[in-house]
Design a protein around this nucleic acid. Structure first.
Lengths: 109, 109
DNA sequence: CGGCATCCAGGAGGATACTG
DNA sequence: CAGTATCCTCCTGGATGCCG
């Protein structure tokens, strides 16, 4: 296992949760609230699953959580510098995916 | 689920196998033989697991297999155009990972 | 509203053994 | 050497219910 693969592994760990990359992508637009914004932009995700993925991202240092101790809890998530650095990568993932939305294969012949 | 997320999903499906990105990365250097080269560059991977991941990549149209019907089987894998297009992405994954090999976190204060 | 604990199911990854 | 077939294990994602 050479260094490239090691590096690759780190990135994979961070990005390859089922929803992590999507969360990071949405957070690129700025700070988001838990229920009011994140859940709405990714409707299919489960409440608990979202919490888990957010926590993992937080533990990996990609995002930060800010809780306001008010009566209806208000929690915001935003990218750290660490997390901002990964944005170009995310954009490329979107771009590559767009290129292959239609052509799933390249049937030649 | 908007279009960005759809696109992201496609890329995730392709890249986020435990070893897929690594295989693609190694294949960037050119055509590789199954046992002689791929297995050696990714030593930790299981024989069977490697075959599975390769097959999935082939089904997704990212790589092509070429079998030479000789007595000791000789099988080569190489990237399709489809697969080549994803290389910049892979490189960025490596780069981002390299940047964070050491600093796992950004402990301020 | 947001978080945690718990439980559960599915599937990806992996081990083993056999063919050509 | 490469592939197939089978079986198994673990881990992630998801569902539910209860707290502050």
């Amino acid at each position: 296992m050479d260094k490239d693969l090691e590096s690759m592994k780190i990135t994979l760990d961070v990005v390859c949760g089922k929803w992590k990359a999507m969360i990071l992508l949405k957070l690129n637009n700025g700070t988001l609230r838990f229920g009011g914004e994140i859940k709405k932009s990714i409707p299919l995700i489960n409440h608990q699953t979202l919490i888990k993925q957010l926590r993992e991202l937080e533990e990996d240092g990609l995002i930060t959580k800010k809780s306001y101790p008010v009566v209806p809890p208000w929690v915001e998530y935003s990218l750290t510098d660490y997390g901002k650095e990964i944005q170009p990568l995310l954009n490329q993932m979107v771009e590559w995916g767009e290129m292959h939305l239609d052509k799933d294969k390249t049937p030649p012949s």
